[in-house]
Amino acid sequence: MTLSLFILFLEQGVASGLVMGSVYALLALAIVIIFKTSEAPNFAQGDMMMGAAYVALYLLVFRKAPPIVAIPLTIVVAFVVAALFRGLVLAKVAKSSGSPVNLVIATLGFSYVLRGLVRGAGVGDTPRTFPPLASTDSIMIDQASVTILDLVIFGAAILTMAGFFWMFAYTKLGRAMRAVGMNPKAAQLVGVNIGRIHMLVWGLSGVISAIAALLISPKILMTADMGSIVTLGFAAAIIGGFNSLPGAVVGGFVIGVSENLVGLFISSRAIVVAPFVAIMLVLIVRPQGLFGGRTSIKKV
């Protein structure tokens, strides 16, 4: 391989990787905020994203709604459905058993319900294409070729993350969310309404998933199984340490870039294993993940 080809591949891999990585980072964020506040991974995250993608598809294609209506409406639906699932279902499960295993199983159930609804509603029976919300004309960044859509995806993902981090760090609501994740008992003692915070965290996670869905759907084929892409969000979360929000973002970019570099330099058939090789490498060097803190010992 000549040097100029090497540089071309490198630039292209990094550019495409950052675009996909920004969406994985969103998915990882959505996973980690729920994990941090409820101590259980949400296995319905992928299907929450898939559901939101189909809501958007329904509005845009079947109802011919303009994006300015369809996008906010999709986000609102994602918020409400996720918050209600937490408030009506998970809250009951948590109260009656409190064991993380039961919570995980409830999220699995939610994921099957969502997939069943999409299949049963007749929109998810055949693969569909999602209308791109921006032009797919290519532009060159140095030697790398990306589409306008790619730039929109990257920009929207970064803006979403920035808004989220600002909310989490500087608002009263964000502070209460962090408090619940850090010490739920103390949060109750200072008067935080824990049930409400849990619902809002789920709602927020639904919103982030919906934004990820709107961004990624034009680039992939839509089926009722498209939620499996969230596996890469989990991979990103693991690389970041699973309880670190900045870690989730960095993990997303690591996965996106390594996927694309492997595809260009090794073989496109090796893409699917790249994230898992990345996970293994990170976990060998840093078992707690890139940003993972010390594992906390829980008091009984």
Binding site: R175, R178, A179, M182, N183, K185, A186, A187, L189
Partner: peptide, 9 residues
């Protein structure tokens, strides 16, 4: 009692 602070804040 004890260590019920928000330790990372």
């Amino acid at each position: 009692e004890g260590r019920e602070v928000f330790k990372d804040m």
